[in-house]
Structure formats: C-alpha cells, structure tokens
Computed example of a mutant assay.
Amino acid sequence: MSRMADDDPSRASRMSQASRTPRTPTAQIVVEILELLAAHTDREHGLTAAQIAARLGVNEKTVRTHLRAFGDMTPLGRKVGHLGRADLAHAESADPRPGWYIEPVFDTAQMRLLTDGVMLSRPDGEYLRDLIAKIYSFAGRSGQLRGLTRLDTPKNYNTEFLNNIELLNDAIAHERAITFHYCTYDIDGRLVPRRDGDGTIREYHVDPYHLMYKNNLYYLLCHMHVYDGLSYLHVDRIRDLRLDEADHSIVKRLDDFSDEPDRPFDITHHMAQRPYPVNGPAVPISMRITGPLEPLYDWFDDADVTRAGTVTRNGTARPVYEVHVVANERATLWWALQYADGGDIEIIAPSSLRERLREVGARLAATYATTDAADESSPCA
C-alpha cells in the first residue's frame, strides 16, 4: 500500500491552499476526497481528516462533514468507514493505520481468483502485468506488485488473442456467425494455420455459443458448420477472426443441441458430464473404485457413490465403492487411462467402454512388449 507523506500537515495545507482559488467548489472537494481514499486506504490503512485536509488544502471541518456524509451512503457502490485502533488489533499488515478508508472494489480472495484467471489466459507479458496491476489497485493492494515487474510472454503467444476475445463476446451476444483460421503446431512448436491437401489455408465457419475454462485451457463452445455436433476449440489457436461477410446470422442456436426437446441447453450440466471437452452423448457409466475418491470427485461433481466393502492390500484395509456417473464415453476413457497405473478403477458398464479400454490396453501391450526395444535401435547401444 502506498503511503501518503506525513510531513508538517499545517505547512502542506498552507502550501496547497496558496495555490487554490479562494473557494474550491464542493463537488471538486468530494471527488478529491474519494480519489485520495481510493489511492491510499484499505481495510487496514486509513487516513485522518487532518491528513486529508492537509493534502487537499481545505478546512478540516469541511472534510469531516463530507466523511460523515459518505458514512451514511455508499459512494460508487463502496462503503466509507472509520478504522479505530481496536479494529486493527488483529491486522495482518506490518503498518496498520487508523483513520477513514473506502472499501475496495474486490476483496483479497476475489482479487486472487481474478488474477489467477488472467494468468491462465497466457496473454502478452506486458499487458498481463498492467491488467494484474489494475486488479490489485481495485483491491487496495497496489503495493504488492513488486513480484510482477517482469512477466514473460508465452512462446506461442497469439497476438490476436485479446482482440479475439472482444470479437467473440460480441458475436456470441448478437448470435452472429464467424469465420477464422485454426492453428496446429509445426516441428518447432510454433502455431501455424491448418491447411487443406493442396496447401490452401483451411477456413472455418462457426456458430459461437460460449467461452469457458476447462482443464486450464480457454475454450470456445461452438458449432462448426461442416459438422453436425458441438465443437470445443482452443481460443488461443484462432487466427484471422471476422464476422461472416455473406450472412452474419448463425445456422444453429445452442438450444438446438439440447438433450431434451423444447428445453434450454444446460451448459453447466453438459460440461460436468465431460471430464474432457469432447462431442457426443453422455451415457450411464458404472465403475468400481478401490481407495480414495479424489480421482472421482476431482473430475465428476455429480457422482452417485455407495460403499461396497473393504479389501486388504499389502496389509492395509482399503474401502471399495460402487460408483455411477452420467458421462461421455470417450472423455471417461481418457480419464480412466490416466489412473490405470494404480489399478484402483475398474469400469463395469457399458460393455462398449470396457471394450475400448481393452483395445487400448492391447495396443499398449504390443507397443511395449519388448522393454529394451528403444535401446536396441539406438545408435549408441
């Protein structure tokens, strides 16, 4: 938190008053008091009426009158109050300061969540630093920016990313179709546009519906006109985004993909059924889990779990659970494979998912049948 200089208040007041017109307009005083509180106070640092008067070069009685009036209202939607020493008895900062303060726009928890969300988007480093600085200042924490003096821009940063977010928001709000190029990685890890077989850059025509974070990636939920179902695209891979020139209207609305006719599409429910964002229906899935339930509830919010007994492994009793979820098969396949090493998750039904897991297991067994194959083919062997 930046601190106002505590020189001689009377001297500062005389100097400020000398440079002012004889009668400062009341509206100007009100604005300047609020600006001063916003810049120099928070829930653990206040300013006295005398300090404010000295800084603004106005009568202390005038300042007190306005401060009391602020206390009976919420200017700019923010509470103005007074901190006494008793209020600061358990302050966490090293230099708590009694006096008048204005409530920050964001509390510390909200600031942290917003900042982490900004970090996930991986924008340009300099823009990121400035944006986080604004979030911190709204939370009255501008003095904590010392660690944000330098933030690196990601190697594959999309210079169009921020502009694309604005265009996507507008297109979604006004139900307008969009056109863009979509990128993949080249051998050096750079993002390059996808191309058709003849080398022409492929162009995609899309109905945009929703922007969302999932698994630390920023997705556009949309309908690509060349497909029947929904698609989930990485926003940072979109290039040359623009509204369709011939017809701005979307081909399909999101509600057209609802599982229940005549009912709105429930996007929260839809995404909860997909540990990974993939297209296709959600089906009832049964499984048996031995041991902790973290792998389940870290990915599935609405699981139905029943305790089914106990087994002993290596002398340790472990609980066994019967679990039922409604989820996309392909997404559940990927989820189950990442926990296959422990052998604590067994898919019971549907049989189609068990068969897909068996096929993947057979391919892995064939690939790694000879454990020293890589060493034998190595020129250094």
Rank of each mutant, 00 (worst) to 15 (best):
G84E: 03
V325G: 06
H223K: 09
V192M: 08
V80C: 11
A27H: 09
M4I: 15
M271W: 03
A317F: 00
N314R: 13
A282K: 06
T316I: 14
Y185I: 03
R176N: 09
N279S: 15
S137A: 14
F70V: 06
I289R: 09
I347C: 12
A331N: 02
L191T: 07
L243P: 11
R85Y: 05
H45F: 11
L131A: 14
R330K: 06
I178T: 08
V105K: 15
V326K: 15
L47Y: 04
D256S: 15
G140A: 02
V63T: 08
D198I: 07
A374Y: 07
L148C: 07
V58G: 12
Y185T: 10
A308E: 09
T74P: 03
P22K: 11
V283Y: 05
T74I: 01
L83A: 13
E329I: 00
R3C: 01
E355W: 08
Y339K: 06
R64W: 07
R3E: 05
D6I: 12
R239K: 13
D42W: 08
N314V: 00
H269S: 14
A39M: 04
G189F: 02
L221I: 15
G140R: 03
P75N: 09
E60F: 04
R14F: 09
P277R: 04
L357G: 10
A303E: 00
T184L: 02
R150T: 11
T159A: 15
R194A: 07
L37T: 08
R112Y: 07
Q110C: 02
D341S: 14
M224G: 08
L47H: 08
Y368R: 05
L88G: 14
N163Q: 11
P98H: 01
A50G: 12
A69P: 05
I348G: 03
D198A: 07
G147W: 00
S286R: 15
H248K: 12
A109L: 08
T371R: 14
E346K: 13
E44Y: 14
A91I: 06
V360S: 11
L241D: 03
Q28R: 15
N158V: 08
Q51R: 15
L333D: 00
E60P: 14
A246P: 03
R129Y: 00
D207Q: 04
A133G: 15
H324G: 12
P292G: 13
L220Y: 09
T184Q: 12
S258K: 04
V192C: 10
Y297I: 13
G147A: 06
Y101A: 08
R112T: 10
E355T: 10
D87G: 13
S351M: 05
A69G: 12
P154Q: 02
A272Y: 03
R318S: 04
S10Q: 10
G342P: 01
L67S: 06
Y185C: 07
D228T: 14
